[in-house]
């Protein structure tokens, strides 16, 4: 089964076979989970949304362009799901700024907070939902401004203003914690 390409697996999954799709999920689940984890900053929510991503992706598999790579496509689906999730949570999220932060940190994890990666995750989590998605799509999924505008269905000018403000906020957070 490892000799099969993603494309082979997708073709078989489209014919209704379950096992090839399971193999596809196994290949891409870590990167999809990390999209959700960077945006949501909460493990349990990120795992739920990653699972939901693969369910949605299976539903929309017939719309997938076989000439393209599966990974970028499924990671964009994940980012969109996370945005919808955050938008639905928005009112309470604004009332309680650190609601999204993982409260279930073990002592070992608390030590890691001092590490750079933990600081970066905290800084990302402090951004407004739309800013987080723009940073995710630009820095981790390497989409162009135009592609982000299409993906998020917002004007190009908003893509730029969200991204540049997000970077300013991130720089302030990370600089302050140095």
């Amino acid at each position: 089964m490892n000799a099969l390409t993603d494309r082979d697996l997708i073709l078989r999954a489209r014919r209704g076979e379950v096992e090839p799709y399971g193999e596809l999920v196994a290949r891409h689940q870590t990167s999809v989970f990390n999209v959700c984890y960077r945006i949501l900053h909460n493990r349990a929510d990120a795992e739920d949304l990653a699972q939901e991503t693969f369910i949605r992706a299976l539903d929309r598999l017939h719309t997938f362009d076989l000439e393209r790579e599966f990974s970028p496509w499924v990671r964009r689906v994940a980012a969109n799901l996370c945005l919808n999730y955050l938008e639905a949570q928005k009112p309470s999220a604004e009332l309680d700024e650190d609601r999204d932060e993982d409260k279930t940190q073990s002592p070992a994890e608390q030590v890691e907070v001092k590490e750079r990666s933990a600081q970066i995750r905290m800084a990302l989590a402090s951004l407004p939902p739309q800013y987080r998605i723009v940073v995710e799509l630009r820095h981790y999924q390497e989409l162009s401004y135009d592609e982000i505008a299409v993906e998020m269905n917002i004007p190009l000018s908003d893509v730029k203003s969200h991204l540049f403000r997000a970077r300013k906020l991130l720089a302030e957070k990370l600089h302050a914690s140095d």
Binding site: E19, Q29, R43, F54
Partner: peptide, 24 residues
């Protein structure tokens, strides 16, 4: 800042999401 963002490592998953798509 770009380098900081690039340096973020991938976190490991604690459960197998593919299990849901195993044949019955």
């Amino acid at each position: 800042l770009f380098a900081d963002l690039d340096s973020l490592p991938e976190a490991p998953l604690s459960k197998n999401l593919a299990a849901r798509f195993a044949p019955r």
